[in-house]
């Protein structure tokens, strides 16, 4: 049984390390902030998630904490990516080589009432 758990833990550690490296490579190679978010915001998160899975399998004492960390990461990771993308768009950072931009028609208008400065 220990051998099986060890193999699962090793697989999870290798996957986690691979995802983390891919996230880092993505930051270097992707052309703009929006595409970089795909690499860091999610692929990087999965790197940590796999490392935590390895901790769950190999360290029984920390199972509860690791499970909760995975849950919080999966809840907070997308929120962070969305907040950064939204902030980048609102501050006017352009897209690199977009094929199409359905959001373009909103660029000249305030996105909602809260953006309209009061007199």
């Amino acid at each position: 049984m220990d051998a099986i758990l060890q193999i699962i833990a090793i697989f999870a550690v290798i996957s986690g390390a691979a995802f983390s490296i891919l996230g880092l490579l993505g930051v270097i190679r992707m052309p703009d902030v929006y595409t970089r978010l795909h690499a860091t915001g999610k692929v990087g998160v999965f790197g940590v998630v796999f490392l935590l899975i390895a901790a769950i399998v190999w360290l029984p004492a920390g199972r509860g904490k690791a499970l909760m960390l995975i849950l919080f990461l999966l809840l907070a990771g997308p929120v962070t990516a969305h907040a950064l993308a939204s902030a980048a768009y609102r501050t006017g950072i352009p897209f690199a080589r977009p094929i199409r931009d359905d959001l373009e028609h909103l660029a000249s208008a305030p996105l909602n009432d809260a953006d309209t400065p009061s007199a």
Binding site: Y34, L37, H38, G41, K42, V43, F46, A81, H82, A85, S86, Y89, L103, L106, L111
Partner: peptide
């Protein structure tokens, strides 16, 4: 899901 980010 990797590959998609909702901006607005």
């Amino acid at each position: 899901s990797p590959g998609a980010v909702v901006i607005e």
